[in-house]
Write a protein that binds this DNA or RNA. Structure first.
Lengths: 112, 112
DNA sequence: CAGCATCCACAAAGATACTG
DNA sequence: CAGTATCTTTGTGGATGCTG
């Protein structure tokens, strides 16, 4: 399906952005875009408090963006990964990333 | 420039999202993507208070996303339009719109 | 018409501490 | 390890009214 100006719908954009509002949603999706990660991995990599991360992941899970998988190890291991819906959002994530590379001037370390 | 997983940079994403955070930034860009609009036009079309709109437009202007043009009519007329930088973000806006059409179920009225 | 000033409400995020 | 509980702080947006 191709975008046309005629198909642009403010209401759809609003609802979509509601899902991804919040400081961390898109960052988390970006981190998971490279592959599944565990709770504490995300917390450390992104520099986000466990409280905020927990809230954000719950919201993303309820919206069908991420999947939570529990491994009954001791101690417990929990892995988060993108659903198809979430992975499909990766296209947007990459577009944002590209835009940032084009227009934001900073010392870019692609390994971070 | 093409995106690759290796070029993804969390820091860049964070800075980019800071520019577009807030409830209205991306909505406003979407509205201006179809062409320049005046202050009150935006306010009515988007259902946004003048205070919030004013703040959002100032932020976007300071980040080089929109241009403010004043026409010395009586009463005064002010028109907002996207800069090249802002217009380039339209690609992301359309991607978000497409994603919403694919995954958000609602009664879509493309004329709105 | 295009805002600004002011006040208020609420949500989101940070800090610290604690648990199965 | 993967969270939850609680409290505090901050920020963003809404409401109302006024001005050049």
């Amino acid at each position: 399906m191709k975008s046309t100006e005629e198909m642009v719908c403010i209401k759809t954009i609003k609802e979509t952005m509601d899902i991804f509002s919040g400081k961390w949603a898109i960052i988390i999706i970006g981190a998971l875009h490279a592959g599944a990660k565990r709770f504490n991995e995300l917390s450390k990599e992104l520099g986000i408090r466990t409280t905020s991360l927990s809230d954000a992941l719950k919201s993303l899970e309820s919206n069908g963006i991420v999947t939570r998988t529990v491994y009954p190890t001791i101690p417990i291991t929990v892995e988060y990964s993108l659903t198809e819906k979430g992975s499909d959002f990766g296209e947007i994530f990459l577009a944002i990333n590209d835009w940032g590379i084009r227009w934001i001037k900073n010392d870019i370390d692609y390994s971070k």
